[in-house]
């Protein structure tokens, strides 16, 4: 007897995305939708998409969504969550959004221990605007505004926002994962599940940073981009649980 063992999750609309071939956003959208379905929170989840390629997340993820101005996702999510504390509120933000223009909003929402979940997509560039240097662009990485590669004492060091947030007392769970291999995709899904659980349990601020390929702006094929993220990006941004005060077992049973 044949069984269907993989299909589109219920909370992912049947739509072809506008994302480029091999883009990590699409994988991540699916994972978020799968977790929402598995946790049974689809009818009480409100998402906050950012400015950037993922602004159209509401065309794909089938829950209520309210678009935030560039960088302000954490502040906007705070407003929603404080008015509707029994809803599950998440923001979905890129690296420029969360770690450059929206740094203040993010750090202070984290510091207040807002019961929100942040999905932080780190692709090391400003994707929608055409591949400029992002706060997370790694040293030496080419971008349209670092044509010879990022030079720290000229362009700044790659910002490690997740580690910075881990210092804030209001953060409960922070993990860095990637969507660059089957194993890491499954890891990312477990991390997102745990991040939402952290919120459901009312423990505090949770965030999952996801290294995500941007083949178009990296000027690599999708397969090469995934490999570059695995081999090079992880040197600056190692995949690990950065903070976990949930008291529940972590990815590796720790």
């Amino acid at each position: 007897m044949e069984k269907k063992v993989f299909e589109r999750p219920r909370y992912l609309k049947k739509a072809s995305t506008h994302y480029c071939p091999g883009c990590g956003h699409s994988i991540l959208h699916r994972l978020v939708a799968e977790v929402i379905e598995e946790l049974g929170i689809g009818e009480r989840t409100i998402g906050v998409p950012p400015a950037g390629c993922a602004v159209l997340a509401y065309d794909y993820i089938d829950v209520d969504m309210g678009e935030a101005p560039h960088g302000r996702g954490a502040a906007l999510a705070t407003g929603i969550k404080r008015v509707l504390p029994d809803r599950i509120v998440f923001s979905y933000q890129g690296d420029g959004d969360i770690a450059a223009i929206g740094t203040a909003e993010t750090i202070h929402a984290a510091n207040r221990g807002e019961r929100i979940t942040v999905i932080f997509v780190n692709n090391g560039c400003y994707g929608m605007t055409g591949g400029q240097m992002a706060p997370t662009t790694v040293t030496g990485q080419l971008s349209t505004t670092t044509p010879g590669g990022r030079v720290p004492l000229r362009d700044g060091y790659p910002v490690d926002l997740s580690e910075m947030l881990a210092v804030a007392k209001g953060t409960v769970y922070i993990e860095r994962t990637s969507v660059t291999s089957p194993k890491n995709i499954l890891r990312t899904k477990r991390a997102i599940t745990k991040a939402f659980r952290t919120q459901i349990d009312g423990l505090g601020f949770s965030l999952v940073e996801v290294l995500s390929p941007c083949p178009t702006n990296w000027k690599l094929s999708p397969v090469e981009a995934a490999r570059w993220a695995e081999e090079t990006m992880t040197k600056t941004y190692p995949l690990k649980v950065i903070k976990d005060l949930t008291g529940t077992p972590g990815q590796d049973g720790n």
Partner: peptide, 18 residues
Amino acid sequence: CTTCAIVCPDVAIEVYRE
């Protein structure tokens, strides 16, 4: 094994198993 579907960014693959 669903590995292809797990990495597919476009949810273009459905997997069946006996």
